[in-house]
Nucleic acid binder design. Structure first.
Ligand SMILES: Nc1ncnc2c1ncn2[C@@H]1O[C@H](COP(=O)(O)OP(=O)(O)OP(=O)(O)O)[C@@H](O)[C@H]1O
Length: 799
DNA sequence: ATAGCGTCCGACCGG
DNA sequence: CGGACGCTAT
């Protein structure tokens, strides 16, 4: 434990950390240290003797959860943090549901439908019911059902309270209730929960089981929640249900950063806290530690345009810094090269690392063109040589676990744990075994009629009266035999890795890909291998930190919720970060580049009708700007390629909200050469030639060809993908893995021994504790003190 | 039943 | 442009 960590807080932060007499709310602007208060508070509580398992700490995004773990880890050297309930809402409550599944009528081996499973299930239901899938667009229906669940409206509630049905009648989809009902029935028959169910059923569990609720209220003495302004009804309700008389809640948030209304987030949740917890103590933080004065001024100038906001006083002692720049480009193609060049030249001039840069955008699809530019390293230099590629890493988008070959393997894993309908549909005919759509539909219809899962029907086709011919029946029987065979692999005592490896072997998934040696197939093989490595690593971590063997079911839960695990090989190295603004919430970078600041993206073309929508979009840009510590650069283009066609777009109206004196406007010469159609904006440009943007040769950008560099899909298959480490929910994450190591006995070690741990690097043993389980305390060079359970820790003895 | 090909459509944000 | 879907020939 760092001894004087409390002194690293300002007086307001300190007061918020030390306050333990009752419920508290920290409401403050961006970069004022709200998350810092949360992390220090966790450290302080543990220091005061609160047990780790009595503390629940919740975040929204996976990335924020990882960052918080890292921050706490740095503060708390040798603490045993394995039992801290820290993670995203979904991961923490998935765990609680796993422990209490039977109370909500599910089995504890339930599986999780990810977003694509949900949409696919809904699509089939719409087809079954004979509705037009143009009117009932599966993805919109899924979004609507998600909203209903987030508002705690069950299919029965939907029938009871006509208000909801009225909305759908107005939206011209009167049969939504029927689809909703059928979908829930199918999920239940399949023993599957979707993402929203994790929150919905947690509420049901706590509501209908006073004993369970009492137990958790008793257990969790402290509940800490980051970004509370983005909680939806279901999340807010869970917190209210868990907060007993002895529970101290500590939530932090900023109404100016509420950007998740599309999934039901409601600012009122944070503003109404006071009426729910009469003793609520409110702390305000006013000093921004993150950004330069210039960046802060721009952000404040922008957000001042919002009418619905609670004005906060915020100041900084940081220097003025560089002005925020706005750059007009001719096309998104040119823009992406300007981004690559700007990053490369800033790095060169100011000695930044790649990881000091983040490129933020509104939608994931914008990453593609930027990736191309980064891969090419930006402009060709004067001698025509291409620069070396700029390493980058993408969060969000198509995650590792969503890739076809990986998902197929995961579905086989599911077959062992709980063969849900969506998993069956995916793999019943992969590898090909002659069971086509017709048969699958028959099985599905039969299952729906008898209100059982498809697997039930497959197990006893005669009993359920499945109407298929003899040959097909034989094929179904041999499919069942195959699944039975792999189910035998998941015997007690076997860890997830052994089971997973067995499944891949028995199903021959790797062999199928050996068939032809296309680069795609080689890459797919490597991905499967990488999946196994990920399971192995998960099992090792779990063992080391909790002393328990990880089950395949636990691994599957985490894999389903890891929607942002990317697939870049140099993921752990020094690289630029690419992500959406939503994903960047709560994070910070020395240099932030915001791409596509145009009027169809900021605000999104979908959110331009109502004032509330516009204001949320403005907050989104506010969040983006306030991620920056030192440099903030916004870019927009005159034309953007949409659906393959260059389309003219206007600059974001939000740029006009910002006091022009605060901005440095410039444009590329190519953009300038095309006399603009947006004169009100053009008149704001500085004459000065900011960093030579006019110098760039226009013709370099004129071609917009796909073949200049490999597409993302191409380059993905040229190199092996790999997921980031998956770590158990209740476990604090270590550093990137390098090397192996083996287990050791106490007599091989003494105080002063230098060891090299697989994940924590080199360190010196400072204490050996043989009382119960042999534990050693090691002072790691990079991470400080850590407590290791000797029987599980893997390391090499260096000296 | 399925591979392969042409056509059509449409494009948000996260767990 | 790229993914999803449907038609056709085997
Ligand atoms: N008292 C302090 N002294 C020094 N640095 C601080 C202090 N408080 C916060 N910081 C630093 O300021 C930065 C922003 O802090 P933090 O991320 O906790 O803010 P936040 O209020 O959660 O921001 P946001 O709302 O944008 O997520 C961090 O780099 C943090 O380390």
């Amino acid at each position: 434990m760092q001894s004087n960590y409390i002194e690293q807080l300002n007086p307001q932060q300190k007061a918020a950390v030390l306050y333990t007499d009752g419920p508290e709310l920290v409401i403050a602007g961006a970069g004022s240290g709200k998350t810092r208060v949360l992390t220090y508070k966790i450290a302080y509580l543990l220091d005061q003797g609160v047990a780790p398992w009595q503390i629940m700490a919740l975040t929204f995004t996976n990335k924020a959860a990882r960052e918080m773990r890292e921050r706490v880890e740095l503060l708390l050297d040798a603490q045993d943090l394995g039992k801290l309930w820290m993670g995203t809402f979904h991961s923490i409550f998935a765990r609680i549901l796993r422990l209490n599944a039977e109370k909500i009528g599910f089995k504890s081996n339930y599986t999780i439908y990810d977003a694509s499973d949900s949409v696919s299930a809904i699509k089939h239901i719409i087809k079954d019911l004979g509705y037009d899938d143009k009117v009932y667009k599966p993805s919109s229906i899924q979004a609507r059902i998600s909203n209903l669940k987030n508002a705690m409206v069950s299919p029965a509630d939907y029938k009871r309270d006509k208000r909801w049905a009225q909305e759908d009648i107005e939206a011209k989809r009167p049969y939504l209730g029927v689809i909703y009902d059928a979908y829930c029935t199918q999920c239940r028959n399949s023993q599957a929960l979707d993402f929203d169910d994790l929150l919905y059923y947690t509420n049901v569990l706590l509501r209908d089981n006073p004993d369970v609720r009492a137990r958790y209220m008793q257990q969790f003495k402290y509940i800490l929640v980051d970004e509370y302004q983005d909680t939806n009804f279901a999340q807010d309700l869970i917190i209210k249900q868990l907060a007993g008389d002895d529970t101290k809640i500590c939530v932090v948030g900023d109404d100016a950063q509420s950007i998740y209304s599309f999934r039901g987030a409601n600012i009122d949740n944070i503003l109404n806290l006071q009426s729910i917890y009469p003793g609520l103590k409110i702390f305000k933080l006013e000093e921004n530690y993150r950004s330069t004065q210039n960046i802060l001024d721009v952000a404040n100038s922008l957000i001042a345009a919002n009418t619905h906001q609670y004005r906060k006083h915020i100041f900084t002692h940081n220097g003025a810094g560089k002005k925020v720049r706005v750059i007009r480009c001719a096309s998104d193609y040119e823009e992406s090269y300007i981004i690559a060049n700007t990053i490369a030249s800033l790095k060169r001039q100011a000695g930044y690392k790649w990881s000091d840069f983040a490129v933020l955008y509104r939608t994931n699809s914008q990453s593609r063109v930027i990736e191309k530019a980064l891969n090419s390293g930006g402009l060709a230099n004067d001698h025509g040589h291409m620069r070396s590629p700029i390493p980058y890493r993408i969060y969000g988008g198509l995650a590792f676990f969503q890739r076809k070959e990986v998902k197929d393997a995961l579905c086989y894993f599911k077959m062992v744990i709980n063969p849900d309908d969506e998993a069956i549909r995916r793999i019943i005919n992969y590898p090909r075994r002659g069971i086509g759509d017709t048969t699958v539909e028959k099985i599905h219809r039969c299952a729906a009629r008898k209100k059982v899962s498809m697997w039930e029907v497959i197990t006893r086709p005669g009993f359920y009266g499945l109407d298929v011919n003899r040959g097909t029946l034989g094929k179904i029987a041999s499919f069942k035999a195959k699944v039975d065979e792999i189910q035998q692999l998941d015997r007690a005592g076997k860890d997830a890795y052994e089971t997973a490896r067995g499944i891949i072997e028995k199903t021959g998934l790797l062999e199928i890909l050996m068939g032809d040696k296309t680069p795609e197939n080689i890459s797919r093989q490597e991905n499967l291998q990488e999946l196994l490595n990920s399971v192995k690593e998960y099992v090792d971590n779990h063992l080391e930190e909790t002393g328990n063997v990880a089950t395949l079911a636990e691994y599957l839960t985490d894999a389903a919720l890891a929607t942002d695990q990317d697939n870049d090989q140099n993921a752990d190295g020094d690289c630029v970060t690419l992500m959406t603004v939503h994903a960047a919430k709560g994070l910070e970078y020395r240099n932030v580049i915001i791409s596509g600041v145009e009027d169809n993206r900021f605000p999104s073309y979908k959110n331009q009708d109502r004032l509330a929508q516009i204001e949320e979009e403005r907050r989104l840009l506010y969040v983006a700007i306030t991620r920056a510590k030192e440099n903030c650069i916004m870019l927009y283009s005159d034309t953007v390629v949409m659906a393959g066609k260059p389309t003219p777009v206007a600059p974001s109206r939000f740029i006009m909200d910002i006091d022009p004196k605060l901005l440095l406007m410039s444009q590329t010469s190519f953009a300038a050469s095309k006399a603009g159609s947006y004169d009100s904006y053009h008149s704001r440009w500085d004459r000065e030639n900011e960093e030579g943007y006019k110098e760039h040769n226009a013709h370099q950008y004129q071609s917009h060809r796909a073949s200049d560099s490999p597409t993302r899909a191409e380059s993905q298959h040229l190199q092996a993908a790999s997921p980031r480490r998956l770590t158990p929910v209740r476990q604090v994450q270590g550093r990137p893995t390098t090397g192996g190591g083996s287990a050791h006995t106490p007599d091989e070690l003494h105080v002063g021994t230098v060891i090299k741990h697989a994940r924590f690097g080199e360190g010196t043993v400072t204490n050996i504790d043989l009382t119960t389980d042999a534990k050693i305390t090691v002072n790691f060079n990079a991470l400080g003190q850590k407590l290791l359970l000797l029987k599980f820790a893997k390391f090499d003895i260096v000296g």
